[in-house]
Amino acid sequence: MNIFRLAGDMTHLASVLVLLLKIHTIKSCAGISLKTQELYALVFATRYLDIFTDFISLYNTTMKLIFLGSSFSIVWYIRNHKIVSRSYDKSQDTFRHYFLIIPCLLLALLVNEKFTFKEVMWAFSIYLEAVAILPQLVLLQRTRNIDNLTGQYVFLLGAYRALYILNWIYRYFTETHYVHWITWVSGLVQTLLYADFFYYYFESWKNNKKLQLPA
């Protein structure tokens, strides 16, 4: 474990807590894409298949349980909670996320570290996470006024993978044979997808203006 990875995990945890805070306290999911939340639940479900077979550390298992539990409960909240589901705007959240799942599955079947079910599922989860934010970014472009919690949620979610990139660089230089093209390329693509959001987020913070993404 290094400071970059710990900071990355804490930033990821913070993004989940901000989203839970928004949904649980103000009982609203305005501006949040259910599609992205469903994709993230799928990412964790396919990535943490080894949660009961390979014990790495208490930290690792605890964080996996937190991410699995929070992602599925957020999907449940938006879909089933009588008050929260009312603030979900289905007509705006129209990204066809199946168009993301199928190509990621095909790519995982072609490019993986070992052609076993667990490894293919793991590669699938890495590829899917790289594009899971797309429905949310599309929704943000359609949302006129993005509330602070939603903006912070997306910012933290993007920042965590950027910190992981620093972690991979650090591990490359400090550990022998630490080379993982699947996570490196996907993580870079994932972070680059946030580039324009980061730009407008920083601009709105610098000029103390409401966050607005151009349509």
Binding site: I56, N60, T183
Partner: peptide, 10 residues
Amino acid sequence: PSSEGAKDEL
């Protein structure tokens, strides 16, 4: 094996 390295991350 190298794949162990990647799996210790979240």
